[in-house]
Each structure stands twice: as C-alpha cells, then as structure tokens.
Computed example of a mutant assay.
Amino acid sequence: MTILDAPYLLMGIMFATTAIINLRDSSNAKRWKSAGFWGINAIIFIFGSYLPPLANGILVIVMVLLAGLGGLGRSGKPETSLEQREVRASRFGNRLFILALLIPLVTLLGTFAFKSLTWNSALLIPAGSSALAALGLGIIVAFFAALVMLHETPASAMHEGRGLLDAICGVAIAGQGTLAIELLQQDAHLDRIFVPVGGGGLAAGVAVLIKHLMPQIKIIGVEAEESAWLAAALQAGAAVDLPRGGLFAEGVAVRRIGDETFRLCSDYLDDVVTVDSDSICAAVKDLFEDVQAIAEPSGTLALAGMKRYIQQQHGIRDERLAHVLSGANVNFHGLPMSRSAASWASSARR
C-alpha cells in the first residue's frame, strides 16, 4: 500500500462502518441487503487494487443487483429533523463553509508541497500524483476540523453520515447530487435553487444534499406541463403511470417519476412549478441573449420555472436565486420553432 491508497482506504473504512451500522439496526427491514451493499463497496475501495478485474466486476454487478432490485432500506429510527438542522445551520452560519473550503485549500497547498517532498533522496509522492494525495489529506483535515467546530464525536458523525448515504444510495441520485456541492462552493448565500424534474434523480440528489448542508435554502422543482409526473404523483400520493407526455422538452419526457426519487422529492423539495412550451422557448432565447449559449428546451426548464415563480408573486425580494442548466443536446432543426414561439410569447405578454 502506498500513500496514494489513503483516500480509498478512508472511503472504504467509512463504507465498512456504514455496513456495520446497517447490520446492527433492527429497525431497517432490509438491513442485511443494505449491509451487503455497503460492505461490498468497502471491499472494493480497500482491497480492489489487490483483486483480479473479474472479481471486482462481479462485486459491482452484485451491488447493482442489490440496489436495482430494491434491496436497500432505510432506518426506522428518527433522523435529525429539518428544524433541528436549520437551528444548527443558523447557529454556525457561514462558518460551516470554512469546513467546505478546507478541502480545496489543503489540496491546493498540498499539491505544491508534495511535489518537492522527498525521503532518502526519492520523491515520497510519485510525479503527477501529488493532487490525489493532497485531496486525501484535505478530507482528513476537514473531518477532524468538523468534529472540533461542531463538538461532535466520530461515532455521531458516522451515524449522521449514514442517514445521508441512505438517502442518496441510488448511484444516479448520489452522482447528480454532487452538483449541489458545486453550487454552494460558487455561492454560499443562495436563497432558492430551481432544479428541473424528469425522472427526479437530479432534483432528489440536489435537494437531499442542500437540505443536509444548508437547510434554509429553498429547493424548487420545475416540470414541463406536458410531462408533469411529479405534480401528478404528489396529487396521487405515489408515483403514477401517465400517458406519454409531450416531446418538446424531451430530456424530461419520462414515462413516470421513480419511486425512490419521488419519495425524496416529496420529502425535501419546498415547492414545484410547471411551465408551458412557450415559456421554455422564451428561456432558450433569454439564455442565448444573456450569455451567448444555446441549450436544449429541457436544459432551460429551470430558468423558465424561475421566471414563472417570480411572476407568481411569491414575495421574492432581494434574494439570490440559482437555476440548473441541465442539457445542451440541441436539435438544430428545432431552433426556428423555438425562436418563433419565444417571439410569440414575448409579444403576447406585452
């Protein structure tokens, strides 16, 4: 094992701890399968470099089967409530972002420092790998700094982290949810974030992470009127199958919202707004005129929703708003129609 294996070892230890916590949690009806999922994750991260490729591939397939066939469950024990998280967030305020900034700061400084770090006249960190080693060090520093600042113990941090992992256990949800971290790193003073909703993975991932880190920020889901599966599911109380919606915003034109993503969206989204095709076309035009970027209709869905939400008089004054631009697979032949619809919508509002 080399120093470059340290970040993977740390992740493996975290996943192994999550597996043990799941296994000991009798309130989780699927604790054995959940423990198996996180245990396999731990094996891959800790021992993956020593295993043959075929073994790693089999382990990944087992993980996919466990997750895809509904083998992952959630603890029945009460989590930290949204109100409690809001109280803690307001108590620490922007100091929480000291922790978030520690990781890139230590990574930056460590990258330069490790390039000249030697032992017996040999480089301690192989050339080209200093950034990865520095990232691992940054994670360790930020973790212990968080324990000191928040007056927490490692055990309580792991239990709270387990709840977050349970919430975003779907690979797609967790991957897309990293967008929330990037948003907060760019602007830590946001008041509302508008996120497009199709199958719900992006909205669920962003909402879960934001509500765990900065619960005072409002998360608004945006749907196309012709593909408003989330609104229909919220009305029915469960994910429902509907006739195929319109294909204008084809990036969000799914048959139904996912069961798990619906549960997370209903728990964590603050509101949902729907927009028509004309509003989406107007957003495509606005984006091009403002930043000279061309996005597909579903890509500008959140911008159209943000404009609609403001027009609906939600008492938005002096707030910092963000919308997620989620796609740029532009159909060139559809641009004239978007331009015409945007012009018509603009003249109709005058």
Rank of each mutant, 00 (worst) to 15 (best):
L9M: 13
S279Q: 12
F47Y: 08
E223T: 12
H333A: 14
S279A: 05
I168E: 03
S81T: 04
A345M: 12
H323P: 07
F112Q: 06
E182P: 10
Q185P: 02
A133W: 03
L179I: 08
I193W: 01
C281E: 03
H212R: 11
E225H: 07
L82F: 09
A146Y: 04
W229P: 04
A249E: 01
D241L: 14
G245R: 04
L69C: 10
A342Y: 03
A19V: 00
Q186M: 12
G36Q: 01
I210Y: 14
G201R: 07
R263E: 03
L234Q: 13
F248C: 00
N94A: 12
V284L: 06
A239D: 06
I44C: 06
V284Q: 13
L54S: 07
I173M: 04
E86Y: 00
I257V: 15
D290R: 15
L209F: 11
I168P: 04
A328S: 15
K211T: 09
R162V: 09
F92W: 04
S346I: 07
G200Q: 00
S266K: 04
G245D: 13
A253T: 02
F114Q: 04
E83K: 12
Y50E: 10
W32I: 14
G251D: 00
G48N: 11
H159G: 01
L72R: 03
G334Y: 04
G138A: 06
L96H: 10
G48A: 05
F37I: 08
W38Y: 15
F262A: 07
D278C: 11
I210V: 15
Q186H: 12
D187M: 05
D166I: 09
I125G: 02
I139N: 10
R192I: 00
L59H: 03
L213I: 15
K218E: 09
L108K: 08
W344S: 15
I103G: 02
R256A: 11
R263F: 01
D259C: 02
L335S: 11
R95N: 13
G110P: 01
S326F: 00
P297C: 02
S27F: 14
K115E: 08
G70D: 07
L10S: 12
S81F: 06
E289F: 05
N41M: 04
P78L: 01
Q84H: 12
W229E: 07
A304S: 10
L9G: 10
G199C: 12
G251K: 05
D318L: 02
G136M: 04
S116I: 01
S27R: 08
I3Q: 00
